[in-house]
Amino acid sequence: MSPENWGQLVTALLAATTVAAACSWSRTGRDVWTPATLLLLAAAAGVAATPADIDSGARAATALLVVLGAAAAVLGGGPVTARLFALVDRPRADGTTTTTQGAGSVLRGGTWIGVLERAAVYASLVAGWPEGIAVVLAVKAFGRYPELRAAEDGVRTGAAERFIIGTFASVLWAGACAAVVVLVR
């Protein structure tokens, strides 16, 4: 295959990732489309990392690749993070449960904060400024600190755990989407 064909394949896989991510936001689609989103992004990463020479094509094709990567980062991170919370919150074999669900009411606005966080992390990495991740995480931590501190005073809500798990999942997802684009460019 030619370097342009490799770039077109990555673009097509990122487009499929974005569509699957958009479908993941529905309740019925979450169980099917979230794993599909993960697999499609992994396939895109594998294809982007395989050839020694890959070309995204003309300027418009590169712009499309960057936009699709951003859409996949922003849209896919929410359902992936929610799916991870579902795994964390499931009952154990002995019947006990350690849940972070109650923390969702303490950490209001998490979906929108996650969307903005993923967009900022993706933009920082694609722009070649990885230090931007530190800025994003610092702003998020300082902004959430009062809520986390209040939630943990006197009662264990799991808010800190939910904050950390959600942040890591969100940042890793955005970083993976950015890595695919950076490998092609």
Rank of each mutant, 00 (worst) to 15 (best):
L9Y: 05
L9V: 15
V10L: 02
T11M: 05
T11S: 10
A12L: 14
L13F: 05
L14I: 06
A16Y: 00
A16S: 12
T17S: 05
T17A: 03
T18N: 00
V19F: 02
V19C: 03
A20E: 05
A20W: 04
A22H: 06
S24D: 11
S24N: 07
W25S: 05
R27M: 07
R27F: 12
T28W: 14
D31L: 14
D31N: 13
V32D: 03
V32M: 12
W33L: 13
W33H: 11
A36F: 03
L38W: 07
L38T: 07
L39W: 11
L41W: 04
A42P: 01
A42D: 06
A43I: 08
A43Y: 04
A45Q: 10
V47I: 15
V47M: 02
V47T: 15
A48H: 04
A49P: 02
A49N: 13
P51V: 10
P51W: 09
D53F: 14
D53C: 10
D53W: 09
I54C: 06
D55A: 11
D55Y: 08
S56E: 03
S56C: 10
G57F: 07
G57K: 11
R59K: 01
R59L: 15
A60K: 03
A61S: 15
A61N: 06
T62M: 03
T62R: 10
L64H: 02
L64S: 13
L64I: 15
V66N: 04
A70C: 14
A72H: 04
A73F: 02
G77D: 06
G77N: 08
G78S: 13
G78C: 01
G78Q: 11
V80R: 07
L84D: 00
F85H: 11
F85K: 01
A86M: 13
L87T: 09
V88P: 00
R90C: 09
P91T: 09
R92E: 10
R92H: 13
A93W: 05
D94N: 13
T97I: 14
T100M: 08
T100L: 09
Q101I: 15
G102M: 06
G102T: 13
G104A: 12
V106D: 03
V106I: 15
L107N: 07
L107M: 10
L107H: 07
R108V: 14
R108T: 15
T111E: 06
W112I: 09
I113W: 08
V115D: 00
V115M: 09
V115F: 15
E117R: 03
R118I: 00
A119K: 01
A120T: 12
A120W: 07
A120M: 09
V121C: 07
V121F: 09
Y122T: 11
A123Q: 06
V126L: 05
G128R: 07
G128M: 06
G128E: 10
W129H: 14
G132C: 14
G132E: 06
G132D: 11
G132V: 13
I133S: 09
I133E: 08
A134Q: 08
V135R: 02
L137S: 03
L137R: 02
A138C: 13
V139I: 13
K140L: 07
F142L: 15
R144V: 04
P146N: 04
P146F: 04
L148P: 02
L148Y: 07
L148G: 05
